[in-house]
């Protein structure tokens, strides 16, 4: 069967139809993702090339591949630094694409996945390229909203570091396909860059405090505010504290309000939220498996 796309490099390359197709495909795979197995990718080999560590993304791809009956080889950071001294990414990709059926690449340089796709004999999936793209994260975020919320009525607050968060930037591009209403809640220094504001047009409102709009929204997407972004530690603690999601805050929200986070979290969400029905972040992490199953089967032509 023909694949809808050969590589998955950026969320922008997907049409709304492609996204919806992946989401419904992931839904079909969910039962297998829950501790079962299939053999649709039996005899296929996935190469995980992680030039920087990302345990969650790597394990999630590995789980997805194995639950579909495929095998995985990993090239980890330590191996890369010892065997590939001075070798270009282009050469590494040319070699590895001779071994495997699909490559997942995680690399610190922006545009690295795009370059890899140009030199690869086999499909390349971007598992995160520096501050650039992380399309499988975006698809699993959308899947979470699709499953647990209402994709046709997204009223979402993006909270925290909106300036540097790659996850937020990719999600914004995807949300623009779904006519979402977006509220931006961030400290002054971590506001959304103007180029993303432009893309959103009129469907976006910047607000000072989450409490002001908590009754208007049905999704809260929280990102980590990193210490390194602040000149001093006191300022960091003051700012981070004021963007923390608490159980009390959620009492004023809609009953079906969901709280998402790409994880790992530090202090952004109080642990007391975990036990509420609003907490969706662990389920969101699990959804990475069926979504990546859908993507792997698609690029290998078993969609």
């Amino acid at each position: 069967m023909m694949s809808r796309f050969r590589h998955l490099i950026s969320i922008e390359e997907l049409s709304k139809g492609d996204v919806e197709y992946i989401l419904s495909k992931a839904d079909e795979f969910e039962d297998i993702a829950k501790k079962s197995f299939s053999d649709i990718l039996k005899g296929k080999l996935l190469g995980n090339l992680f030039f920087e560590p990302s345990t969650r993304t790597r394990m999630s791809f590995e789980t997805a591949m194995k639950r579909l009956g495929g095998e995985v080889i990993n090239l980890n950071t330590a191996e890369i630094s010892s065997i590939a001294k001075g070798e270009t990414l282009a050469d590494t990709i040319r070699v590895v694409s001779g071994y495997v059926d699909t490559i997942v690449i995680r690399h610190p340089k922006e545009g690295s996945a795009k370059l890899a796709a140009e030199f690869s004999e086999v499909p390349v999936i971007n598992g995160g390229d520096g501050a650039g793209q992380h399309p499988t994260q975006t698809l699993l975020d959308l899947y979470t909203i699709w499953k647990e919320g209402d994709i046709n009525d997204i009223r979402i607050a993006l909270v925290g570091d909106l300036k540097y968060s790659r996850t937020v930037h990719s999600l914004i591009k995807a949300l623009s396909l779904f006519n979402a209403e977006i509220y931006l809640v961030s400290p002054e220094a971590l506001r959304l860059p103007i180029q993303f504001r432009e893309e959103l047009g009129n469907n976006v409102v910047e607000v000072d405090s989450l409490e002001d709009i908590i009754g208007e929204i049905n999704v809260i997407y929280v990102t980590r505010i990193q210490k390194e972004r602040f000149p001093d530690l006191d300022e960091y603690h003051r700012v981070a504290g004021s963007y923390r999601i608490t159980r009390k805050m959620l009492e004023n929200g809609e009953e079906n309000l969901i709280v998402m986070h790409p994880l790992p979290r530090v202090d952004e969400i109080s642990p007391e939220v975990d036990a509420t029905a609003h907490a969706m972040y662990f389920k969101q992490a699990f959804y990475g498996v069926p979504v990546r199953m859908a993507i792997l089967s698609e690029v290998m032509g078993y969609g």
Binding site: T88, L89, A90, K109, G111, K114, L115, E118, D129, Q133
Partner: peptide
């Protein structure tokens, strides 16, 4: 963009697509 893969020793040329009269990096999107 100093973090763009095209600013490394990879065997590729700098490459931009023209979008609305502006240059957009083929690799990193800058």
């Amino acid at each position: 963009n100093p973090s763009c893969i095209s600013n490394t020793s990879e065997p590729v040329s700098y490459r931009f697509v023209v979008v609305d009269g502006r240059l957009k990096c083929h690799y990193c999107g800058k």
